[in-house]
């Protein structure tokens, strides 16, 4: 049970970075930390003591098999996270190009 809470604390660390930090790169790192917390959570609840990988093998009873689906879900969410992160970094570079700063309080041409 404690591990789940640690995982949620990791999520909250990422959330803190997104909400509180002023540097764009730190915000991106916060988003990545959040993503990894979710992926870690997926891996954690699928964990089984002495579990066996769900690959078929001959002369072997398939007992205590772990659920294969969370791993597939984690992989999918990693791919999605990769795409989001790549786009975020690309936009961050372009923002630096346009504004000359990573400080989000100085990037304020939009208001209202």
């Amino acid at each position: 049970m404690l591990t789940y809470f640690l995982c949620l604390i990791l999520f909250c660390v990422g959330l803190y970075a997104i909400v509180r930090k002023r540097n764009i790169i730190k915000i991106i790192i916060g988003i990545i930390i959040c993503e990894y917390a979710v992926n870690l959570f997926l891996a954690l609840f699928a964990y089984k003591m002495n579990g066996r990988s769900p690959i078929y093998s001959p002369r072997q009873e398939i007992v205590n098999m772990v659920d294969p689906l969370p791993q597939a879900l984690a992989l999918t969410s990693i791919v999605i996270g990769l795409a989001t992160t790549a786009l975020l970094v690309g936009i961050a570079i372009r923002i630096y190009e346009k504004y000359g700063t990573f400080d989000i309080t100085k990037i304020n041409r939009l208001k209202g």
Binding site: I18, V38, F41, T84, A92, I95, R109, L110
Partner: peptide
């Protein structure tokens, strides 16, 4: 410049939303 800024804000908020949904 404005579009980049708007897109970054949108992306940061929306990525958070997606993570909540995934969780």
């Amino acid at each position: 410049a404005e579009e980049m800024e708007a897109s970054f804000k949108y992306m940061a908020m929306s990525a958070m939303g997606s993570l909540f949904i995934l969780l």
